[in-house]
Design a protein around this nucleic acid. Structure first.
Lengths: 365, 365
DNA sequence: ATCACGTATGGGAGCGCTCCCACCGTACCT
DNA sequence: AGGTACGGTGGGAGCGCTCCCATACGTGAT
């Protein structure tokens, strides 16, 4: 339903901008060409041009060619505002980041998502709006914004368990796709990576390397993904026949500082641990620092595995073994799902996509 | 077509629910309220409501109050598309980043700019579109995009000397504000930091510390800012009555590697130097490396000062004295200038704002 | 030839706003 | 009193599209 692209039109040459300060009453022919002008040029009606532009099949080949020629000659580009107004849609979707701006820029996760989404939208006429909803004030604005119908759909990432946004979206009937669900039962379409499987693979790897006392540093457990990673850790241990010692589980919050704190607690409670699975690379970095200070060598004394396979992992010394999530792909899939849902807002069918993760083994384990 | 990443900053209004899937032929009252409905409710004409919404002064207090009440009761929010169409504007501006996406997310410079711009736009109805123009393909798209009049104005950052974008903008007559001009003679409104003053302060500081043989490593001199920093270096020396020994000036290119090379040349030509002012932190990092290898202690043997006050500076060992630029403030001012220029595209007046820099003294000097 | 049907096409009727012009009343002049 | 101004107001005329209903023109069946 989104439209097709036309070839670029020369900028330096003919393109004159809409009369800087000219009166609206001033004659035609000044500004950008309109549908009507294309129609006249092609010798057809307005409706037909519209059909061609929007890729309707009910146009004869000859007519289509004539229109396309006229479009190219005139350098016609549809007027977004007019289209939105007439069609009652905005051709824009929002990527909602329920975090303060600072974190958005700090975490590579978001930039990968943006890249993926951007790729999926690249040859679409859809605009991507980035909205931060870190503070209460921002969230209130966002709610108004959504209610005002300023976007055709919403992409939601990194949602906390107590976040009412998904419900609001559902209630407003705005198409939405979520990544990082609050639970397995979220009402929205979702794209996730296989957190459980990734964590299981990481821990299995540690076991295979002969580690016996494997601790874990978890993310905020009100984040579904963090919970899954913890489940994966438990699963792997259970599968190996080991009993999980709860003292080996240290909750943290996905920050480096939190990782350090958790590591200190772990070292305190179980000085004999010989491996740590951190639920994020950033937390692993915090843990590494503490291990260093405690004189533990990595990986000789303690093996360390992270999650995310971010730049942090590659640049750590020693390079960090980590679970890679196909984040860019997730962004792409989210956008695809959303586009589809916008085009056809039919049933209450809520697709769930789970993308596989991959363990990237490096020097730290 | 062009990728438009956008940071949207929604504006508040009363929240009202959207009607999903109502036929356009279906009766009124279903969807969001329109201007007309507000007018009816307030017992005034459409024009008057429009005037109130847009803050026109030619409305009586009583009428304004009545309209505002109606707006609140109905939860009216103007329809963006309709407004754009009628007013022939888009209420969107683009922040053009002539870099690949990756660099955008990597450099704190950009996030600070975005934060500043966002702040300035926060209680405006203006949307911020982020566009990357790293590749040739992207730039061509951008040109089409701009020519198609999809934004009311453009914010341009980090422009290279041979970049034709400013000229294109000027030619298209699109309001634009640039930061990091190509030269003092750029056609556009500009916001810059006081590169000259910052450099002068850095060198004066070195002089005050008793350093006598102060060298400098410059950035690419085809970048206006780099030239300014060199001027500042010269000024400070001249003010102190010293004669600038041209052998103490080593040109580089803003890279770490370039900084190293320049430092080597400097050491070679003037082994007796006791201080170095590098025109960027990154180059200072390169210089530091070479000084280390040459057995010079910092700051005991050679004092080192950088420029940018980036993370590099804070994390260097020893922590680098550097010149801080008020980047967020620059973003804010850029947005302000652009808004102003869009509102009143009158004269060819091109304001230039130069923001003060600040020397942050740390251990390296 | 006549009818029925399907396909391609033209163009009217808006979408919800801004602009602008005509108009009203009142205040202030002569 | 009549004239002139001007602040305040209502509403027509679009902005450039999409929708959808007519219409025109096939085609094959009757």
């Amino acid at each position: 339903m989104v439209d097709r692209r036309n070839a670029g039109f020369p900028v330096g040459g003919g393109a004159r901008t809409a009369s800087r300060g000219g009166t609206r009453t001033s004659g035609r022919s000044g500004g950008r060409p309109t549908l009507e002008e294309v129609a006249a040029r092609a010798g057809v009606g307005r409706g037909t041009v519209s059909r061609v532009i929007n890729g309707s099949p009910r146009v004869s080949e000859a007519t289509r060619a004539a229109v396309e020629a006229a479009v190219a000659e005139l350098g016609y580009v549809p007027n977004r505002a007019a289209r939105s107004l007439a069609a009652n849609r905005t051709d824009a979707i929002a990527l909602v980041v329920p975090e303060p701006e600072a974190r958005f820029f700090a975490e590579p996760y978001f930039s990968d998502i943006v890249r993926g989404v951007g790729a999926a939208l690249a040859d679409t006429d859809m605009q991507l709006l980035l909205t931060f909803a870190g503070s209460d004030r921002e969230r209130r604005r966002l709610a108004d914004y959504l209610a005002a119908g300023r976007v055709d759909g919403v992409l939601l990432v990194s949602v906390h368990a107590d976040d009412p946004l998904p419900d609001l979206l559902e209630q407003l009937g705005i198409p939405a796709v979520i990544s990082g669900r609050r639970s397995a039962a979220d009402p929205l379409a979702a794209v996730d990576s296989d957190n459980t499987g990734g964590a299981r693979a990481a821990v299995a790897h540690l076991l295979a390397r002969g580690r016996r006392t494997i601790a874990t540093i978890t993310g905020r457990l009100d984040v579904y993904g963090a919970q899954c990673r913890l489940d994966g850790y438990r699963d792997a241990l259970a599968e190996s026949g080991a009993v999980v010692d709860e003292r080996l589980v240290a909750p943290a919050d996905f920050t480096e500082e939190g990782g350090s704190r958790a590591m200190r607690a772990l070292l305190d409670r179980c000085p004999s641990l010989d491996a740590v699975f951190a639920a994020s690379d950033v937390m692993a970095a915090g843990a590494r620092q503490v291990l260093r200070e405690a004189g533990r060598r990595i990986p000789d004394d303690v093996a360390l595995v992270g999650f995310d396979d971010s730049a942090v992992a590659r640049h750590m010394d020693p390079a960090l073994t980590s679970v890679r999530q196909p984040i860019e792909e997730m962004g792409r899939r989210m956008a695809g799902l959303l586009l589809q849902e916008i085009a056809d807002r039919s049933g209450p069918e809520r697709p769930r996509i789970i993308l596989p993760t991959e363990l990237v083994v490096r020097d730290s384990s």
